[in-house]
C-alpha cells in the first residue's frame, strides 16, 4: 500500500450573511481538483471554525464572508487558531473585503484575500502552492 496524501481544506463561513454561492463554487472547484473539502455551512462561530480545523486536521482554511463583520470575526478566528497550535495551517479569505482592510487582515496571519470574480483556477493554484509541507 502506498502513502496517499490528500489535501484537506475547510471552507468556513463566519458571520450571519447567507451568501454561500462563492463558498460553494470554491468548495466544488477544490473538490474537482482532487482535494477533500469540509464545508460546515453558514453562520459558524469563530470557536466552531477553529475547533473544526483542529479536529479535522486540515491543511488549509478558506474563510468566506460578505456581511462586513470581518473586522470583528477574523481576529477572533486567527487568535483561536493560534491558541490551538494551528499556526501551520494556511488561511485565505474571500468575499467582500474592502481593499483598505486587506493589509490589516494579512497582519492577522491571513495569507491571501480573494475578491469577487477571482477565477477558481487561481484559488486552486494558490492552495496547491501554499499547502504547508507537513510530515
Amino acid at each position: 500500500m502506498q502513502t496517499e496524501r490528500k489535501i484537506r481544506v475547510l471552507i468556513a463561513k463566519p458571520g450571519l450573511d447567507s451568501h454561500d454561492r462563492g463558498a460553494k463554487v470554491v468548495a466544488r472547484a477544490l473538490r474537482d481538483a482532487g482535494m477533500e473539502v469540509i464545508y460546515t455551512g453558514l453562520r459558524q462561530t469563530p470557536e466552531q471554525i477553529a475547533e473544526t480545523a483542529l479536529q479535522e486536521d486540515v491543511d488549509v482554511i478558506g474563510l468566506s464572508i460578505l456581511s462586513g463583520a470581518h473586522k470583528t470575526l477574523f481576529p477572533r478566528i486567527m487568535d483561536l487558531l493560534k491558541k490551538k497550535g494551528l499556526t501551520d495551517v494556511t488561511v485565505f479569505a474571500g468575499g467582500i473585503i474592502p481593499e483598505e482592510d486587506v493589509e490589516e487582515m494579512k497582519k492577522l496571519g491571513i495569507k491571501e484575500v480573494f475578491g469577487p470574480g477571482t477565477p477558481t483556477e487561481r484559488i486552486i493554484k494558490y492552495v496547491l502552492e501554499n499547502v504547508p509541507k507537513r510530515t
Partner: peptide, 11 residues
C-alpha cells in the same frame, strides 16, 4: 445576542 457581534447595523 452573541451571534450578533460585529453585525449590528452593518448590512
Amino acid at each position: 445576542h452573541p451571534m450578533a457581534k460585529g453585525e449590528v447595523g452593518i448590512c
